[in-house]
Amino acid sequence: MKKSIAFKTALGAILCAQALALGFLESLIPPIPFLPPGAKPGFSNIVTMFAAGSLGLPQALAITLIKGGFAFVTRGFTAGIMSLSGGILSTLAMWLLLKFADNKLGLIGISVICALCHNAGQLGAAAVITGSGVIIYYAPVLAVFGIATGAVTGIILKAVMPVLEKQKQYFYR
């Protein structure tokens, strides 16, 4: 029984659940001053990034899409679009970077770039939805915030890596 489709799906589902749980925990954080309401650390990226690096692009994208779908169902259309636009962009970025740049960048750097891609995707989607470019005003503050949260995400990922790898072994024996 090597890497059967059923086991892959099961692992994907568990990672999805973990990503959603992290997203829920994050929503309990109160609004942060100086930042646009809705700015979040993006801890579910820990899981997505593990998936992108360890399981491959399809698995990572699947998690992102399900996360977006979940936001769509529970928080409405715009929340879903925001989640997807930021998520897909950052997932593509993390897959590319982990695959081609991991001899130049560490988890912290990659995670920071992904946090920024996430922000950029969301700002872009918000600009399209509202038909107005004014939210770009928040870009610099968001970028600095993104560096902090990206770095934290990278460090946490490194710390929980053994656990995630172990979890993976249950399914990829």
């Binding site: 960048l105 750097g109 770039i113 993104g146 490194k158």
Partner: peptide, 16 residues
């Protein structure tokens, strides 16, 4: 992937 490489500093600096 390593936690930290020199390139990370460059990335963070450029963004800042």
């Amino acid at each position: 992937t390593k936690l930290f490489r020199k390139g990370d500093i460059a990335v963070i600096l450029v963004i800042l």
